[in-house]
């Protein structure tokens, strides 16, 4: 490839060496080209020259070499086509996109109605998450649902409409059932495992929870604590943003007791992320907007659109060739 990065270029310049043999054949051909529109004209010229009566110069005699010239130009155009002239235009720059996994708490405490009247924390969380997803068309996004156990419900996908459909199917676990707990560390570890397979440069986990880790503890050493999950994420280059939603744990008498968010703060801080608190829907939307700004897409350098122009050179060659053949077979035909 020669030429500049943008503008006109020649993709296969090596074919240009063919110009040498082609020009040689042309020169040889030119020397052998008959000098008159019919074979015996040379003889007539000699005779008339002796009698000092020159032959009349007609249009046909003036254009005797035109078909040969057109054929030669056609061959040159073919060689140019073989070199593949291309136009390189800048393509619109696209954001590189990120791989982002949401970890959504589905424990029964997400049924509290403190974020918005008549709507549970989970409903509000789903709606705001859907808006967030729709606003990031270039990202691959998925989500993990977690309570006592966690599930990768939607792997990283660019099909955000499908993701929203799956988000809508998200339900809470049964209150005080065997799954009604909050295992934040394990959920983040599952997200980290899924993101580990990703080749994206930027990998982000957003944890949305209203509770404290109550599965991993000193008495359960096999469980993954948030701090261990943070170490795992840091090792894989994954940033974790954490959002504590709601006003705290709701007691049976309706009072809210403030959450202990230490683990969430440490999880975010240990991975280069940020910790947020959202006590109502508006605040949650603002948190997502802040994360959106934190994870703003830096535009890539513009790409290049390559446009092939060899068909044009080839079309020119074809026209020249057709012209040469037609002329030599009609008004400029040579006898015999």
């Amino acid at each position: 490839m020669i030429g500049f990065e943008l503008g006109w270029q020649v993709a296969e310049p090596a074919w240009g060496w063919l110009l040498l043999p082609v020009l040689l054949v042309m020169a040889w051909r030119w020397r052998r080209l008959p000098r008159a529109p019919f074979a015996a004209a040379g003889l007539l010229t000699t005779v008339t020259a002796a009698n000092e009566l020159p032959l009349p110069r007609t249009l046909r005699t003036r254009l005797w070499a035109l078909p040969a010239c057109l054929s030669m130009l056609a061959m040159l155009a073919v060689v140019v086509a073989m070199m593949r002239p291309t136009a390189h235009r800048p393509a619109p720059a696209l954001p590189p996109g990120r791989d982002l996994l949401l970890c959504l708490d589905t424990s029964s405490s997400m049924a509290a109605l403190d974020l918005e009247p008549d709507r549970s924390r989970l409903d509000v969380g789903r709606a705001v998450a859907a808006d967030f997803v729709r606003a990031r068309p270039f990202d691959r996004i998925g989500f993990v649902a977690f309570a006592r156990y966690n599930d990768l419900r939607c792997p990283l996908t660019s099909d955000h409409e499908a993701l929203v459909v799956l988000l809508d199917k998200l339900t809470m676990v049964q209150k005080e059932g065997p799954e009604d707990a909050t295992a934040i560390g394990a959920a983040v570890a599952t997200a980290a495992a899924a993101l580990r397979r990703s080749t994206a440069k930027s990998k982000v986990v957003v944890v949305v929870t209203d509770g404290e880790e109550n599965v991993a503890s000193a008495l359960a050493p096999d469980e993954i604590a948030p701090l261990h999950a943070a170490q795992l994420c840091a090792e894989f280059g994954i940033r974790v943003h954490t959002i504590a939603v709601g006003r705290g744990n709701q007691k049976p008498d309706g009072r809210f007791v403030a959450l202990d968010t230490t683990a969430l703060q440490q999880l975010a801080a240990g991975t280069g992320g940020r910790f947020f608190v959202a006590t109502d829907r508006r605040a949650l939307a603002q948190v997502y907007a802040a994360i959106d700004a934190l994870e703003a897409n830096a535009l890539q350098p513009p790409g290049v659109v390559v446009q092939e122009w060899f068909p044009l050179a080839l079309a020119l060659a074809l026209l020249l060739w057709l012209g040469a053949r037609s002329l030599s077979a009609s008004c400029l035909s040579r006898l015999p």
Binding site: E12, L18, V22, V25, V78, A81, R84, F310
Partner: peptide, 22 residues
């Protein structure tokens, strides 16, 4: 792109045509 090789063959045929006596 394979067009240059196809054209190379076409070019050879054209040159051969030129070398054939009238």
């Amino acid at each position: 792109h394979l067009a240059p090789w196809v054209l190379f063959t076409a070019l050879c045929l054209w040159m051969l045509r030129w070398c054939v006596p009238e």
